[in-house]
Measured scan of single mutants.
Amino acid sequence: LQLFIKTLTGKTFTVEMEPSDTIENLKAKIQDKEGIPPDQQRLIFAGKQLEDGRTLSDYNIQKESTLHLVL
Rank of each mutant, 00 (worst) to 15 (best):
S57F: 12
K33C: 03
T14A: 14
L3M: 09
T7S: 15
E16G: 09
T14E: 07
Q41M: 14
E16N: 07
E24F: 09
L3I: 06
M17F: 07
I23Y: 02
Q49P: 07
F13T: 03
Q49G: 10
P19E: 10
R42L: 05
I5P: 00
D21Q: 12
D32Y: 08
P19W: 09
E16K: 15
E24T: 12
E64W: 13
D39M: 10
D58E: 05
L71F: 12
T7E: 12
K6N: 12
I5T: 00
K6T: 11
T22F: 07
L26N: 00
T9G: 12
T14D: 08
L26I: 11
L3K: 00
L26F: 02
K27R: 08
I23T: 04
L26G: 00
D32L: 08
H68K: 08
K48M: 15
I23G: 01
T55Q: 08
I44T: 15
S20E: 11
L43D: 00
I23M: 03
F4Q: 09
I61T: 06
E51Q: 08
Y59K: 01
V15T: 03
E24S: 11
Q41L: 08
E34I: 14
T66G: 03
S65M: 13
I61L: 09
G10V: 04
Q62R: 08
Y59D: 01
E16Y: 10
G47A: 04
L50M: 15
E16C: 04
G47M: 08
I44H: 14
S20C: 04
I30A: 01
L26Q: 00
L56V: 07
Q31E: 10
L26D: 00
L71V: 09
D52W: 04
T7H: 09
A28V: 09
K6Q: 13
T55I: 13
Y59T: 02
N60V: 04
E51P: 02
E16S: 08
S65P: 03
T55V: 08
L3A: 01
G47Y: 09
L67K: 00
T14K: 07
T7F: 11
A28I: 13
A28Y: 10
T7P: 12
Q40K: 11
D21W: 03
P19L: 07
V70E: 13
L43I: 12
R54H: 09
R54A: 13
K29D: 03
E18D: 14
P37L: 05
S57W: 10
D21P: 01
P37R: 13
E64C: 04
Y59M: 04
G10D: 13
V15K: 01
S57A: 09
R54T: 15
I44Q: 14
I30R: 00
L67D: 01
L50H: 00
K63C: 03
L67W: 02
I5L: 04
R42K: 13
G53Y: 08
P37G: 06
S20P: 06
I23L: 09
R54L: 14
K29F: 15
E16V: 13
K6I: 13
G35M: 08
N60G: 08
G35Q: 10
T12N: 08
Q40R: 12
G35S: 09
Y59H: 03
L1M: 10
L26Y: 00
Q31D: 09
G53M: 11
M17I: 10
T9Q: 13
L67Q: 02
T22A: 05
L71A: 15
P19K: 08
K11G: 12
I61S: 03
K48A: 14
V15Q: 02
T55R: 13
K33Q: 13
R42E: 15
G53W: 11
G35I: 02
P37N: 12
Q62I: 10
L67P: 04
Q31F: 10
I44M: 10
Q2P: 07
T22D: 04
F45P: 00
E18F: 10
L50R: 00
K11Y: 05
L71M: 07
D52T: 09
I5A: 00
V15H: 02
I36T: 14
D32Q: 09
K29T: 07
H68E: 11
G10L: 05
Q49C: 04
I36H: 12
S65H: 07
E34S: 10
Q41R: 01
K33S: 13
L56K: 00
G10C: 03
A46V: 15
T66F: 11
T66W: 12
L67T: 03
A28K: 06
